[in-house]
Nucleic acid binder design. Structure first.
Lengths: 235, 235
DNA sequence: AAGTGGTCTAGACCACCGT
DNA sequence: CGGTGGTCTAGACCACTTC
């Protein structure tokens, strides 16, 4: 990460998390940050923009930059795709692999992944367990030509860390569709709820920076345990 | 709107919606846009940034700027707060006011709105009807010192248009919490579903640009009719 | 009036994609 | 290699808040 504005953003994000600005509820002025980090104003503003987009701070013209109310730690953060492990930091997260194998794309999946019917895919079904209780069921399809290898060990931890740090994939953007349904029998058993109870669903289509879709996933959440948080800005 | 980059962004957004780039699936290069609009590169890049954040396009270094797959029109867009009317453009939206009056903040609401207990609030309960069928129930609280006047007529249309265009409020950011529950009897009747059926819930806390909370709302959606879309970028 | 963020310009150099 | 985005700088002027 040789990029200045990202380094500054990370540095400030760490400071915010560490409560460094909690007294004042205010960040240093742009002027001060420019002097601290010895960069141009644009670079500082780009860094701050990241913090704004991530929901850490808001800016008031003529007044300053302020901390946003802390978000409770137990929400699934829609805006990040860092995964449960990073979202629910105060919890114990465990993962049980229910299925993991390579299969051929059928017509439905091929259309959604925008690939050939018959293309090789990794299929993974996982049960996520939070504080010893079942939390969600996640079904994922990865294009094998982009993710050539996966195993139980990787899938038991953060798949995304593996994709980014080991495979060096550059993840670009995603579409998330949220809705809710009556849960089916099999899933109900896994989540320890009754059949026909509500279930919160997130369907996720994820692309590399070059626009290629590489993953499709569907997560079914325990309706009493899962809450999704999204922070939005209008500028 | 005398701001160049916003004007350019709106212009390009219109062009995209009108399908102007559908053939190429590609936008003009920055160079070309600079010449078209006669502005500096930074200004063009700021405009494009808006399009990226709104999920219209993605950029590939060394290659160009491309259209993202069109999002289906029938989703609730989490990233905008333009309201149902603007999200579900292909639908007929009607609104029935169930309640509208001024009340005093109780302790729970006061804490959430960060105001005094007893502060005057507008309380509004609305039934939203899409294509002649009940779609959602929305309960909103507005601080009366910020929104001094509301009536059935305003609440029957887009409250946000009124706040922005008439009251000149500058909306800054919002926290949205999504979850799902078993629906209660009263709401079930209103939405034409069975009691204990699932319900998709969005709780919304909205702030002005200066950080003041001015609205709290809770929307209960018909579980079979509502789908939420969120487009995310990682940069 | 002073302080602080918002917009805009002009120009330089780097990094990546495709031919 | 040429084309295209990505990062960075330096400086000017404007708009809003605060006192």
């Amino acid at each position: 990460m040789a990029v200045k504005y990202k380094e500054i953003a990370e540095c400030l994000e760490r400071d915010i998390r560490d409560g460094k600005f909690d007294r004042a509820k205010k960040l240093p002025t742009e002027e001060e940050l420019i002097n601290n980090f010895k960069v141009s104003r644009n670079t500082i503003r780009k860094a701050i923009n990241q913090l704004v987009n991530r929901g850490y701070v808001y800016q008031v013209q003529g007044s300053g930059m302020f901390l946003r109310e802390k978000s409770v730690t137990d929400y699934i953060n829609l805006g990040s795709l860092r995964g449960l492990t990073k979202d629910l930091t105060s919890k114990i997260i465990e993962t049980k692999i229910l299925e993991l194998h390579v299969l051929d794309a059928d017509e439905v999946i091929a259309k959604q992944l925008r690939c050939e019917v018959g293309a090789k895919l990794y299929y993974i079904k996982r049960l996520r367990i939070v504080d010893k209780e079942p939390f969600s069921i996640e079904i994922s399809y990865f294009k094998k030509d982009i993710v050539p290898y996966l195993n139980e060990d990787i899938a038991s931890n953060s798949i995304y860390s593996y994709l980014i740090e080991d495979l060096k994939l550059t993840i670009g953007f995603a579409d998330k569709v949220i809705n809710c349904e009556k849960i089916g029998e099999a899933n109900a058993r896994l989540l320890h709820v009754e059949p026909l109870d509500p279930a919160l669903i997130i369907e996720n289509t994820v692309c590399l920076t070059n626009g290629t879709i590489f993953e499709l996933s569907k997560s079914v959440f325990h309706y009493q345990k899962a809450k999704i948080l999204n922070r939005i800005n209008f500028k």
